[in-house]
Nucleic acid binder design. Structure first.
Lengths: 248, 248
DNA sequence: CGGTCACTTGATCGTCTTCAATACCAGTGG
DNA sequence: CCACTGGTATTGAAGACGATCAAGTGACCG
């Protein structure tokens, strides 16, 4: 169940800043396109909310009445087939903007992996903001474009890569996430379960598990406590990810 | 080889209209966001071009110096793995806008299936146009959003659907294309080869072929001269596309 | 006519799935 | 403290689906 609060609590001892001014997500999100002077408008157009781990806060097929901007936590986006088969289309974190669908209903569901905080904009209010700040619309277009590129990359993975290559690719992209996109971290945490990874890569839990241990035995990675991954041999992992290098 | 001509030839006996005014693609494309009065600006910002069947007019990895708007013909977009495995990410036709990638290089290749005519905008010129006509940027965002929705649907197909379901889904989406999106046509032509369909659905030519004949033998479709498809039993085909109905 | 190309159909093979058993950990309550 | 539970991950054995390999057809074309 979603618990909507009026606004994320922000410490503002001097009473001068708007919530958006001190928002952790601002740097990473489209809100950055709004100048400081106009943050009040932005703040008044949105409502804060929380989705606890495991709760679904966007439901495929529901009327798409609002847009979300994630301010903390991680969520998974997915689509379902009538018989329950699931495809996770992405994992989204801080600064991610949700709801770009043009249609009148959501084309995907979103479920919180850990506690997710977000700002919620109604369709109409966001339209007003976008009309007033064309820079924000430009920013949205950039975001959509780069997501499109990522989606195409994922199609290549799902359509043409082997299980081994998929897992290696996944670990590499995950390693590039947190670390400010530069000098990808050698050690990182997987917040999602193996089942989630499977539904993201079009594989089963067992196949994920088998290939993780395989990558470990060939010395490409190291796994600690099941969630912490250490990349031991990045070139090897990259080779395994695009088929350049065959596994032994 | 691409043959670039200065501008698509347009019959304009009175010398009043700009090429864009009589462009077949305008209705279906983002150019529709430009008012008639300003078509001269639009026309002067682009250069017409032709790509003959089989020629590649966008190359993955090349500097993304230009954007394309398809005015006639059909092209396939694809990505390659180092060893030659190919994933077609989409087929694009009249009115489709190409090059939404934000990065400095193209993230995909584009090859003409039949003769493709297009208008080519340099990055800089398009930016100018977009700055002057925010409606066009809005339109681009809508386009990008709907492509994103389509991409997610394709991920579901590639990650979780069986070969049968993929082929059925593909035929259904193809049937919805030409016919103005309403009352999907019962009869339509597949312009692409089985190999292309295979690379689009993450399958091999043989699997495409086998499942086409299977769909024919169960009475869902009819195939004439290999390129013409007739949908005989749409509900059955829809059931086979999402796993609701099992094949006999 | 020989050549190529696209498509179809058949037989065999391999990868990933499915089914099943086990281990592990955290939380709960006796 | 230990037994019990539910969720998660690993590993093994059997099975299925699609890939691969191979052959054959028909259309088009120089």
């Amino acid at each position: 169940m979603n618990v909507a609060i009026t606004r994320p609590i922000v410490i503002d001892p001097y009473g001068t800043a708007h919530p958006c001014a001190t928002c952790d997500a601002r740097q990473a999100s489209i809100c950055n396109a709004i100048p400081d002077a106009d943050l009040a408008r932005l703040a008044s157009a949105s409502v804060g909310g929380i989705a606890k781990s495991g709760t679904t806060f966007i439901n495929e097929g529901d009327p798409a009445s609002a847009f979300f901007n994630v301010t903390s936590g991680i969520a998974k986006l997915y689509k379902l087939l009538p018989d329950g088969r699931r495809q996770i289309t992405g994992f989204v974190g801080v600064g991610h903007f949700l709801g770009l669908a043009v249609s009148d209903t959501y084309s995907f569901s979103a479920e919180a992996i850990d506690t997710v905080r977000y700002c919620r904009f109604s369709r109409a209010r966001l339209r007003e903001i976008l009309d007033d700040f064309p820079l924000m619309e430009q920013c949205l277009l950039k975001v959509a474009s780069s997501e499109l590129v990522a989606a195409q990359e994922q199609m290549l993975l799902l359509g043409r890569k082997t299980a081994r290559e998929r897992v290696a690719s996944f670990l590499l992209t995950q390693s590039r996430l947190g670390s400010a996109c530069q000098n990808p971290s050698m050690r990182f945490e997987l917040k999602m379960t193996r089942a989630d990874i499977g539904d993201y890569l079009g594989l089963t839990v067992e196949t994920i598990s088998r290939n993780m241990t395989k990558l470990r035995t060939v010395g490409a990675i190291d796994v600690a406590d099941n969630t912490t991954i250490v990349i031991r041999d990045r070139p090897a992992l990259e080779g395994l990810a695009d088929g350049t290098r065959q596994g032994p």
